[in-house]
């Protein structure tokens, strides 16, 4: 499903990703953890080419791209590749001038995949799925952060992505709102959605992940099922990281 080989990313002289190798199967939930600055967000942003890797190979579903330093992948090629992914951001990034429903419709409708009516019906279904049918006609500034993030999830799902990418989806939320977002994500996982989640929520990693990926210094440090990575960490780096994280 997702196959990453030798993926590197540098910003000028700063080498953020130093060769990431990773395989994720369809239906897997990969939770990426690691200390700040380890490259986990950059890795996620490379998966949908918000950042263009400087080297390595990337395969998602049926698409494959190779990268080289200075080699620029064309925008249409990037867009085509990106279409197999959906992304949820830390800061929600809802469109503030559109209602909740219009936000969810925007992908299929503005890309002319569906008619306004069909896109609206799809939005209604998705809003029901994230438990926000009642909020459809509100503006983003009239709902809570937890609700906004659920709308953002529905908006990404509206394009039927093969993989959902989550970049610290609960880090900007008040503690009491984290649960409702994780619940929706858990529901997606149970429905078989392939997901890559960068998060600090260890309980989510433990309960929902099929793979936990510990990133350290721009590489994959350890990887495996949660019981192995979280409960029997091999490297001192991971042991030290886990001891500092609140469970």
């Amino acid at each position: 499903m997702i196959h990453v080989k030798g993926l590197k990313k540098s910003f000028g002289d700063i080498h953020v990703l130093k060769g990431v190798d990773l395989k994720i199967e369809r239906g897997d939930v990969a939770v990426v953890i690691g200390p700040s600055g380890c490259g986990k967000s950059t890795f996620l942003r490379c998966l949908n080419l918000l950042e263009e890797p400087t080297a390595g190979r990337l395969e998602i579903a049926t698409q494959r791209l190779e990268f080289e330093p200075g080699g620029k992948v064309s925008e249409p090629r990037k867009a085509k590749f990106r279409a197999s992914t959906g992304m949820v951001f830390q800061g929600f990034n809802l469109f503030p001038h559109m209602t909740v429903r219009e936000n969810v419709m925007s992908g299929p409708f503005l890309n002319r995949i569906l008619s306004r009516k069909a896109a609206g019906e799809k939005a209604d279904e998705l809003l029901a799925r994230v438990g926000l049918s009642e909020r459809a006609h509100l503006m983003p500034n009239q709902i809570s952060g937890g609700q906004a993030q659920r709308v953002a999830i529905a908006r990404a799902l509206a394009l039927d992505p093969e993989v959902m990418l989550f970049d610290e989806p609960t880090s900007a939320l008040d503690p009491e709102l984290v649960g409702e977002v994780l619940e929706v994500m858990q529901g997606l996982a149970e429905d078989g959605t392939t997901m890559v989640v960068v998060t600090h929520e260890m309980s989510f990693a433990r309960d929902v992940a099929t793979n936990v990926v510990f990133m350290d210094g721009g590489k994959v440090g350890e990887m495996g099922p949660p019981a192995q990575v979280l409960d029997a960490p091999q490297s001192p780096r991971l042991q030290s990281f886990l001891s500092k994280v609140v469970h």
Partner: peptide, 20 residues
């Protein structure tokens, strides 16, 4: 974030500009 959200939703430059 508004640009990035529009990018991951696959909007063309013209669509981003006009609608977002």
């Amino acid at each position: 974030g508004q640009w990035e959200a529009s990018t991951v939703l696959g909007f063309s430059y013209a669509t981003k500009m006009r609608h977002i």
